[in-house]
Design a protein around this nucleic acid. Structure first.
Lengths: 149, 149
DNA sequence: TATTGTTATACTCTATAACTATA
DNA sequence: TATAGTTATAGAGTATAACAATA
C-alpha cells in the first residue's frame, strides 16, 4: 500500500536527519570553528550577500525580536556581522556579514550540506533517483538557506 | 556527478524534515494532547511495553541523569508513567507507562510517523522506490523508536 | 570503590512587557 | 497610531557538583 510505504520512508528520513551522531557531529564542528549552536544557527539563516533587516531574521528564526537583539549582539562580539542603518527607513537596522562572517558562513553551509557517510551505500544512479524524488517532495523554492535544527 | 546529487538530496531531506510548519504542527498537536514538548519527547523515547531504567532514558535522550529525574517527575505528575523498583538491582528504578501513557504513546507515534502532505506528489511506485532507497540509507536497526527533534 | 538516582544550584535559551525612536 | 529595535526580567530546559543508597 502506498500509505504504508510513505510512512516507512518518512520515518527513515526523520531517523536519518535526526540521528544523534549527525547532530553531535555538527555541534562539535561548530565548536571547533568557535561557534556556539545559537550563533551557527543564526549565521545559517543570514544571506552572505544581502543585508538582512533584524525583523526578517526574527521571522526566519521564528523567534521574538528581543531575542534577535541578543543574537546579533553575539554575532557582533564574535566579529561575524555588524548592524547598519537601513537606507530609507531609519527604524530598521540591517545585519551585514563581515569578511570573516562570509568565510564562516560558507564553511557552515558546506558542513550542513554534506550528506552522512551512509550515502556511500547508494550507486550513482540510485543517488540521482533519490535526488529526483526528493525534488518532487521539496521543490527548489521550498528549500530554506539553512535548515538546521 | 554523484557527490552533487547526494548533497542536493541531503539538503532537501533536511529541509523537509526541519520545516517550521512540520515542527510547529507537531508542537500544536502535542499541546492539544496536553503534552509539553519535553514530555512528548521523553514519551517517544520510552517503550510502550518494556520497563526502561532511568539510566537508559538518559542515554537515549543524551542528557544527564539529573534531568531525567525532573522529566520522570513530570511524567508521573501527568499520569503518563510511574517509577518501579528493578527486580534484581535495587539501585535502579524503571519507568513503566500507565494505561493512559500507552494510549498517548500510540497517538504520538502515529503523529510523528505521518508524512507531510507533499508526499501526495509521488505516485505509488515512486513512493515505493523512495522507501527502498531510504531503507538502504537507514537500515531497520538504525531507526530509533522516536526520532523527534 | 563504582554506579544509580536525587537535590541544590546555576547557566543558556527564549519569551513577555514596557520603552524609545521613527514612520 | 503602528512598527523596529532595545532593555529588564522571568520562565523553561539542561548541566554540574555533592550526596545517599546500593552493588
Amino acid at each position: 500500500m502506498k500509505e504504508e510505504a510513505a510512512r516507512d520512508a518518512w520515518q527513515r528520513m526523520r531517523a536519518l536527519t535526526h540521528r544523534p551522531e549527525t547532530l553531535e557531529g555538527l555541534r562539535d564542528a561548530f565548536e571547533r570553528m568557535g561557534l556556539t549552536p545559537g550563533i551557527a544557527k543564526a549565521l545559517m539563516k543570514l544571506s552572505a550577500t544581502e543585508p538582512t533587516p533584524m525583523r526578517n531574521l526574527a521571522a526566519t528564526m521564528r523567534c521574538d525580536n528581543s531575542y534577535v537583539t541578543a543574537v546579533v549582539d553575539a554575532l557582533e562580539e564574535r566579529g561575524i556581522a555588524r548592524r547598519e542603518a537601513h537606507p530609507t527607513d531609519r527604524r530598521i537596522k540591517v545585519i551585514v556579514l563581515t569578511d570573516e562572517g562570509v568565510t564562516l558562513w560558507a564553511q557552515v553551509q558546506e558542513l550542513v550540506g554534506t550528506p552522512p557517510s551512509s550515502f556511500a551505500a547508494l550507486s550513482k544512479s540510485e543517488t540521482a533517483q533519490l535526488r529526483d524524488l526528493l525534488e518532487k517532495l521539496c521543490p527548489e523554492e521550498a528549500v530554506p538557506a539553512g535548515a538546521y535544527r
